[in-house]
Simulated assay, not measured.
Amino acid sequence: MKLFFKIASAVMLLACPFIALNAQTSSVDQSWELVKKKAAAEHKLILVDLYFTGCAPCAQMDKEVFPDPKVKAFLDANYITFKSDILKEEIAKKISMKYGVTGFPTFLFLNADGQLIDNAAGFKSADQFLALLQEERNVGQKGIFKKYSPKIQEQDYPEFYKSAYLENKRNVPFDVVDSYLQAQPSLLAEVPFVIITGLRVGNKYDDFFLKNIAVLSKDFGSASVSSHVYTIVKRKKIQFEKANDLESFKKLKEEVRPVFSEEEWMKFQDGLMKDFDVAKS
């Protein structure tokens, strides 16, 4: 890939605006800290691009979007780009863990201190991505950030959640997660939020999540919330199908509609209504 290349040393890291972690780097955490230092020194924001080899939309971004002259110029002027493979690199796994990332590519927009401006996921056209980069830069310049803590503190997470992301042990029994969440002072805090979204926790937590869509979107980003809401709606759809209740399903869709962008909504509509037995009849 032409836009991104792996560093061979810290000197090379400090010399280049586009940074990709080498899986053989002795300390991936140190490399991440160097990225933040570079962003601070150049008064730029950080774009984290989380991907994996074999991810079709990730490859499409690399082929069609990042080489675009307007996108490239804007990135060069305003961002340090940190690209990391979630299957091969520990820092990518840790960052994914911190933000409960479930879809790829995922883009995180941060300042040099590690404060999150917002996140986004999925393929974007060159024009869409450029507009997104401009919007996040403007928000970052205003000092508006989400409520995530700026540092990755592994001790903040329960073992089952760390294992899910760092060791890919994602089949966590519901009662284990439920026991942990019930003991938390607030489910609106960062760690409970990423556990619920990152592990797609359902049952009673679906209704809690739907009830608190607005505050969760404001605190942790609409992309993370909309992705989980879509999962919830698909689960609810099964219940409404069994009850032969299309009207209630339509009502639920309208209630969650505000959390989705126009583009997301158009894409999700087909999937949400497809094969609904009542709709067919």
Rank of each mutant, 00 (worst) to 15 (best):
V225F: 02
K147T: 08
P67L: 09
T197I: 07
G54W: 05
C16M: 14
F220Y: 15
D29T: 14
L14G: 07
S224N: 09
F260S: 06
F123P: 07
K218A: 14
G114N: 08
A131Y: 10
V71C: 05
S26V: 11
T53M: 13
E263Y: 09
M12Y: 09
K267H: 10
E262T: 07
R200M: 09
S96I: 03
Y205A: 06
K218T: 11
L133W: 02
Y51C: 03
V256W: 08
I117Q: 06
F104Y: 15
Y79D: 03
S226M: 06
G198A: 04
E33G: 02
E159L: 15
D275A: 11
G140M: 09
Q60G: 01
F18Q: 09
D206R: 11
V65Y: 00
D175E: 14
Q60C: 03
G103R: 11
Y79W: 07
G202R: 12
N111H: 11
Q141G: 01
Y180W: 14
L108F: 07
V215C: 04
T197L: 07
V194S: 02
K169P: 06
M273K: 09
P17V: 02
A189L: 12
V71I: 04
A243Y: 00
A20P: 00
L130S: 09
M273G: 01
F66P: 00
I238R: 13
L216W: 00
A23D: 05
K236H: 13
N78A: 01
D275T: 06
N78T: 05
K142D: 09
S96F: 02
G103H: 13
L3A: 10
E254L: 15
K236T: 00
E33H: 12
F82R: 00
T53E: 15
S149A: 14
V139C: 04
F209Q: 00
D85R: 00
E64F: 03
D178L: 02
